[in-house]
Amino acid sequence: MHLALFIIFAGLCVAGALNLLFQRHPINSALSLIVVMSSLAVLYLLLGAEFLAAAQVIVYSGAIMVLFTFVIMLLNAGREERTHGSKLAYIAGFPGAAALLGLLTFIFLNRRSSFGQAQLGEYLATTGDLSRVLFRDLLLPFEVTSVLILIAILGAVALARKEH
């Protein structure tokens, strides 16, 4: 059950990410990123993080991606054109990313016995468990992030405003 769900949604994740990479129109890339984020929510649920799964759907594939698609439609972004700068990126980008992937995969698979196995249903972190730590030990960082969000709102309004 766990393995089947993992394979299905990991496959959806990788397929969506590759689609983001190979699509040339930004709206297609944004929609495939929504697939990646929603599948990641299921993987969080498999790992027992139920609050994060809900927050992933609400914050990431809800709020942030709606913002992205809204801006893409507002700016009427068309297909991206190739320039000579992107050829250099092709030559350097794919081998660099492949080397990074190879290194990380080698390390993780080499030490896989020390990472253990994940079983469905054990160590389920409920919202109560999370909030007990968040509002006791991490109260100051939590309050500081509210100031950060306030500043981000002010910055977004000031930057996007039309100047007269």
Binding site: H2, L3, F6, A10, C13, V14, A17, L18, L20, L21, V36, L43, L46, L47, G93, G96, A97, A98, L100, L101, L104, T105, F108, L109, R111, R112, F115, G116, Q117, A118, Q119
Partner: peptide, 19 residues
């Protein structure tokens, strides 16, 4: 039962595609 290393490798794949 899924090895946690599988989740880490999936994270590495997604990160590399992002890079």
């Amino acid at each position: 039962m899924v090895p946690i290393a599988c989740y880490l490798v999936l994270g590495a794949i997604l990160f590399s595609i992002g890079v």
